[in-house]
Simulated assay, not measured.
Amino acid sequence: AQELCRRYGTYFALDEVQTGFGRTGRMFALEHWGLEPDIVTVSKSLSGGYVPVGACLMSKAVYDNVFDSLEHAISHGSTFAPNDLGMAAGLATLHELDEQGLVERSARLGELLLERTLPLLERYDVVRDVRGLGLMWAIEFQEPDGGSRTWRLLERKQPGIFSQLIAVPLFSDHAILIQTAGHNMNVLKGIPSLTVSEADIEYFASALEQTLQRAQRIPAAMMRFALKAARAGRRKTPAAAR
């Protein structure tokens, strides 16, 4: 993409909203591939997740073209852009990233996370892939080897349902919050805090394997999932409506 943009004189922009500020083991994910974008968007972790904040980073060439006159300068603004609280939170986050060595920590603990979870590929045929970069991690599921009528039936009714057989018990039984990587996808993503400990990673890997052991018995796992959902729905239903 960068080569094509350069060839045709188009600005090359990257979205680092989720990957920036140490998430992948580098300050920005673009560093892994030596990319040189003209524009980079960042947000979320810029404030450590505490204050809504975002920023648009740009090369000098882009800056000079955008703000080359007073008329153009006022075309790019926002009512809430000069947010003092957001900027203070951003500066504090950058200080902590540097002071605590959190980018390097992300790279080191990301390797540990992969080391503890990659063996699941060999142990469970329902696991299609385990991948990660720094503390951005994912596990992908597939129909078990030899085929499964139950799997195919469930996937026809609701694509990506198996990932919920993992996500729900991880939360309800182990207090681990994880989410699917997208709608109708059998991929779970893990993006823990950069301050996560080695003990936390060991706990997660153990809980994940326990959950996989139960979930691969799909009919029983589906029944447990349905019962939990029914109980949760019943608790939320007002007594007068029952």
Rank of each mutant, 00 (worst) to 15 (best):
L102V: 11
V168W: 02
A73L: 07
E122C: 11
M87N: 10
W151Y: 02
V130C: 07
S148V: 00
I139T: 07
S148P: 00
F141K: 03
I74Q: 12
F80W: 10
D125A: 09
A167P: 03
D84A: 13
V127L: 09
T79E: 15
Q142R: 08
G147I: 05
S163V: 09
Q164S: 13
L154R: 01
A81H: 12
G147D: 01
G101T: 11
L121K: 14
G147H: 02
E104T: 11
I161G: 00
R149I: 05
A88R: 14
L85W: 13
R131E: 07
D84I: 15
L94R: 08
A92Q: 10
S78A: 13
R128N: 05
E155W: 07
H95C: 12
L118I: 13
T150I: 04
A107E: 10
K157P: 02
H76M: 08
L102C: 01
G134V: 04
A73D: 06
L114Y: 01
D129H: 08
D145N: 09
W137L: 04
L102A: 00
S75R: 11
V103I: 13
E99I: 01
T93G: 05
A92R: 09
G160W: 06
V168N: 04
E140N: 06
T150H: 02
R156D: 04
M87G: 05
T93N: 14
R116Q: 13
F162Y: 07
W137D: 06
R116F: 06
I166H: 01
M136K: 08
L153H: 03
Q100W: 07
R116Y: 10
L112D: 02
V127Q: 04
A107W: 02
E111K: 15
D145W: 03
R128K: 13
S163Y: 10
F141S: 07
S163D: 10
V126I: 14
A107G: 10
L109N: 13
R116P: 04
D125H: 11
I161A: 04
V130S: 06
P159K: 02
Q100H: 09
S75K: 12
L85C: 09
L114N: 05
L94V: 13
Q100D: 15
Q164L: 15
L121S: 10
Q164A: 13
G147P: 01
Q164K: 13
I161R: 00
S163N: 09
T117Q: 09
L153Q: 08
V130W: 03
V168S: 00
R123H: 09
R149L: 04
R156F: 00
Y124R: 05
V103A: 01
L118F: 05
L135H: 05
D98I: 10
T93E: 15
D145H: 10
R156M: 00
L120E: 05
N83I: 10
T79I: 15
A89V: 12
L135I: 09
L112T: 08
D129G: 03
R128C: 01
D84G: 14
E96C: 05
R152L: 02
V130K: 06
G86K: 04
R123C: 05
I139F: 06
G77T: 09
L118Y: 05
S148R: 01
D84M: 14
L133M: 15
I161Y: 04
D145V: 09
F162H: 00
R105Q: 14
E140L: 06
G90T: 13
V103S: 07
